[in-house]
Write a protein that binds this DNA or RNA. Structure first.
Length: 418
RNA sequence: GUGAGUGUGGCCCAGAGGCCUAAGGCGCCAGGUUGUGGCCCUGGAUAUCGAGGGUUCGAAUCCCUCCACUCACCCCA
């Protein structure tokens, strides 16, 4: 028996209402903030991610699905959504459009990880990117939008974690301070962190090991080493957030796992969060487009994990609208009646009335049971008598009342009911 | 990559060496009405007990190996 690959999942009909609900809320959120939809390929040249996400990151080092195609090109299934959108922005000359260019997407994301609750090898993200504008107004707007999105879903009890990690002007200074700070403490750091100390001391801050944590508690904070520009940017972002009544937790240890981030970084975490805490996250990436070969164009974005949203909707007991049910089930008895049933179904559907039709090979009783399970409001029964009269016996499944009527009468009733 | 737990019909699960040619519930199918659902009653189908090997007169039950799933660490959505 074949099974879905490890870390992937089939989303069965029962689950679909959650997904549809989330997509509708996302679409509405994007409409409110003026984002347009973009779709990009599921795979790209591997180099796109090597350059942007960064060669030292876990995503690139050990999680990327990377393969050579039959022409020996190195390709990768996208492990994140921002770089492909930026690639498309450049490739299609969107830097010539009025800036910022605001784009959103639904994308499946692939990372070769050990699966766990809320963590998959193929997961789905809703993301948005505002490219071409460096004002902190946009940072605030993206955060406001992210929170608004979660709020519109009915989710409560989540926190906004916020930090600024500076830019290429000020980050080296901070990294230097970090190195100086951690060097004498090397003895108490875990193996991973000793490597991080050399390659990317910033990432040392979010190690969860107790010994490293206590060392990191007093480490120099990036927010204290921002250059004038980054400091002003962060300062006015906080002012905008205050004006918008957005509360945040200043988290000096918030460091994101992708190298392209600059200045603002943030994550949204459910308060009662399990281990896979982040519902969504994002930040500014003012150097990303230059990294992948464009002129320097700033950007900021945000992405949310749809599987984790579903998880949280369930734990918070948030009901979602059920899937639509067809309005009518057409039951029939006998070969001749079946022909009439097929014609009636076609007539109903051409009037945009969702209809199910029975093959009529089972007993009427079984057909009714079927109709009941399908949740239809009406059953139209066609037997010998109705056939002669050119009618159907229409049964209201809620009241049990029945009435013989012509197809046009049935259509009229169903249209009223809508 | 590391650690722990779990694998019995479509789903939830009982079962702890012979009483298991595997129980129960949900679901499915059919009958109880000669043309009628939901409730109820009755009956039925569906399980190489994760796979392979071993111990034993005898294994779903004990041992070994493998696989898968789940959870946790790491990292993230």
């Amino acid at each position: 028996m074949f099974k879905a690959p490890r870390g992937t999942a089939d989303t069965l009909p029962d689950e679909q209402p959650y997904w549809r609900y989330i997509e509708e809320k996302a679409l509405e959120t994007c409409r409110l903030y003026g984002y347009s939809r973009i779709s990009t390929p599921a795979f790209e040249e591997a180099g796109l991610f090597l350059r942007s996400v960064g060669e030292g990151t876990d995503i690139v080092n050990k999680e990327m699905y990377i393969f050579k195609d039959r022409s020996d090109n190195e390709m990768a299934l996208r492990p994140e959504g921002t770089a492909p959108v930026c690639r498309a922005y450049l490739e299609h000359g969107m830097d010539n459009l009025p800036q910022p260019v605001k784009l959103f997407y639904f994308a499946d994301i692939f990372r070769y990880e050990r699966p766990q609750a809320g963590r998959y090898r193929q997961h789905h993200q809703f993301g948005c990117e505002a490219i071409g504008e460096q004002s902190p107004v946009l940072d605030a707007e993206v955060i406001h939008m992210a929170l608004g999105f979660f709020g519109s879903l009915g989710l409560t009890d989540f926190s906004l974690q916020l930090n600024s990690i500076g830019c290429k002007q000020c980050r080296p200074g901070h990294l230097q301070k970090l190195k100086e700070y951690f060097e004498p403490l090397k003895g108490q750091l875990c193996d991973d962190c000793r490597v991080r100390l050399e390659k990317n001391p910033l990432r040392l801050l979010d190690c969860k090991k107790p010994s490293c944590q206590s060392a990191a508690d007093l480490a120099p904070k990036s927010a204290d080493y921002l250059c004038t520009e980054c400091g002003q940017h962060f300062g006015s972002l906080k002012e905008y957030l205050a004006a918008l009544n957005i509360r945040f937790v200043l988290n000096h240890r918030l460091v994101r796992g992708l190298d392209y981030y600059t200045k603002t970084v943030f994550e949204i975490q459910p308060a009662d969060g399990g281990s896979q805490s982040a519902l969504g996250g994002g930040g500014r990436y003012d150097d990303l487009i230059a990294m992948i070969g464009g002129k320097p164009v700033p950007g900021i974005g945000f992405a949310a994990g749809l599987e984790r949203i579903v998880l949280n909707l369930k734990t918070q007991n948030i009901g979602v609208p059920p899937a639509d049910r067809p309005a009518v089930y057409i039951a029939c008895m006998g070969e001749d009646a079946r022909v009439e049933a097929v014609k009636l179904a076609a007539a109903l559907r051409s009037e945009a009335i969702a209809s199910l039709i029975s093959s009529g090979e089972r007993s009427l009783k079984a057909q009714l049971r079927n109709a009941n399970n399908a949740g239809v409001r009406y059953v139209a029964i066609i037997g010998g008598d109705e056939m002669k009269a050119g009618t159907a016996m229409v049964r209201n499944m809620e009241t049990g009342e029945q009435q013989e009527m012509r197809p046009d009468e049935l259509i009229a009733i169903l249209k009223d009911a809508k």
